[in-house]
């Protein structure tokens, strides 16, 4: 391989600016974290609600929940990014449409976080529904028999158990959020992948750049994984270890 290695490149100044390449990457990391964490909050909140809807005894909420999941699960994430960014504003009322196109602050960031959040919510909903389905039906009966309403039954009895069961699959969804956030570069969010491409072109040290970026993504996903393992240990119920595995 005839390549001129230069690991010192990260501390060098970018062409025509007083930042270093490392500054670029760290800014990118910041936006990656911001998009991912915002998206995760949206995904968890909506995913739990939609997942619960899909496990209800009556038909309408189940159909609504299923439609949601199929909608967001069957379109590629990249296409969804473009849809939200370029297509959706056209369908808004005229004033809103203008505002979104011209004045909306942090437009790229908010669009990316919303899009990734909704996309992931469909996947979280699927896990939550499976978790609820794995509980014995008697748990719901017992809660209802005590006079709890259906929402109270979900809040205090069904979801606390179902969520504990689905922590392992949710962990991979959380890791996926960090990895999928790289798609946000396509609509111009200055996140890690965007900055990496910029650094590659500017510095012509593509290998070091992408190795560094790989490491940063790896650290994010790995930290997400460790965090979830910690939560799993914290919420473990005495006498129930065998069941949650």
């Amino acid at each position: 391989m005839n390549y001129h290695w230069n690991w010192g490149i990260f501390l060098e100044q970018v062409k025509g600016g007083d930042e270093t390449y490392l500054d670029w990457l760290l800014t990118g990391l910041g936006w990656t974290l911001a998009v991912s964490l915002t998206a995760w909050v949206i995904a968890l909140t909506l995913g739990i609600c939609i997942g619960a809807l899909r496990s209800m005894p009556s038909r309408l909420p189940v159909m609504l929940g299923n439609a949601w999941v199929e909608l967001f699960r069957n379109i590629p994430l990249l296409v969804q990014m473009f849809l939200w960014f370029f297509v959706m504003p056209e369908f808004l009322p005229r004033d809103w449409s203008l505002w979104v196109k011209q004045d909306m602050p942090a437009k790229e960031f908010l669009t990316a976080a919303l899009c990734l959040g909704l996309f992931t919510s469909a996947r979280v909903a699927e896990q939550v529904r499976a978790g609820v389905g794995s509980l014995p039906r008697g748990q719901r009966d017992a809660a209802l028999a005590l006079g709890l309403t259906l929402p109270q039954t979900y809040r205090h009895v069904i979801l606390p158990q179902a969520l504990r069961i689905v922590i392992p699959p949710l962990t991979s969804e959380f890791m996926n959020v960090f990895k999928n956030s790289s798609v946000a570069f396509a609509i111009g969010v200055l996140e890690l992948t965007f900055q990496a491409r910029q650094m590659q072109e500017d510095s012509e040290q593509g290998i070091e750049t992408f190795l560094a970026v790989t490491l940063l993504y790896f650290i994010c996903a790995f930290a997400a994984n460790r965090g979830m393992v910690l939560i799993e240990a914290r919420t473990r119920v005495p006498g129930l270890i065998a069941r949650t595995g």
Partner: peptide, 11 residues
Amino acid sequence: MVFQHFELFPH
């Protein structure tokens, strides 16, 4: 109501 499988809330 008391159930065959107790149905205490395990968490």
